[in-house]
């Protein structure tokens, strides 16, 4: 079978190399609801290095509300929701909401340039799952998928597909999980 040389596709590399899908497609809107889990289970293990090579273990975050977002740079809805994750973190981080964005299968050389393009640029921890093993543990079937772990360490909410995390409905759902915020 004859296979064309990659240089033939250089134009396409430039136009589409970083995006999964063509820019011309009408992209579906990001939604803004998180679904409560039917039976709140204990959060699966999650322990990975960050950009700074610091190890973060979700076990050490009990008592906080932790939003765990599984993503990759080549996934369009993941890219689209990333600014709203930072906005959420800026609104709710000091109140006790932690955002962990778990990158699937990519390296720092790929992820770091992407983060520089995001506005506002993420200040929350980016974790690296180089072999994608967390996806099976967390029963993820597509990217992006996001979970919210309550202060008790149990899964409180799930969202499949891109979301607008800075939407007031989402912020309220997260803040309501905090013991000090409940009932406000």
């Amino acid at each position: 079978m004859s296979v064309a040389h990659p240089d033939r596709y250089q134009w396409a590399w430039l136009l589409f190399g970083f995006w999964l899908l063509p820019a011309y497609a009408d992209l579906p809107p990001l939604t803004h609801g998180l679904t409560p889990t039917e039976t709140p289970e204990e959060a699966p293990p999650l322990r990975f290095p960050t950009l700074d090579d610091e190890i973060i273990d979700i076990k050490d975050l009990k008592g906080r509300v932790v939003l765990v977002n599984f993503w990759a740079t080549w996934c369009p809805p993941c890219r689209r929701e990333m600014p709203s994750l930072e906005q959420l973190y800026q609104m709710a981080g000091e109140k006790g909401v932690i955002v962990l964005a778990v990158n699937i299968g990519e390296d720092i050389d790929t992820v770091f340039p992407f983060l520089g393009q995001v506005d506002p640029s993420p200040t929350f921890p980016i974790l690296f799952d180089s072999d994608s093993g967390s996806l099976a543990q967390w029963k993820v079937k597509g990217l992006p998928t996001t979970f919210v772990v309550g202060p008790d360490g149990r899964l409180a909410y799930r969202a499949v597909g891109g979301r607008e995390f800075s939407h007031p409905d989402v912020v309220r759902q997260l803040l309501d999980l905090l013991p000090d915020e409940a009932g406000k």
């Binding site: 939604t31 597509g142 990217l143 499949v160």
Partner: peptide, 20 residues
């Protein structure tokens, strides 16, 4: 693997979705 549309999935009402 993960760029493909999921082989199976469950979507809650109110906006769960995938693109692949």
């Amino acid at each position: 693997r993960w760029a493909q549309f999921p082989p199976e999935q469950a979507y809650q009402p109110g906006g769960d979705w995938n693109q692949g």
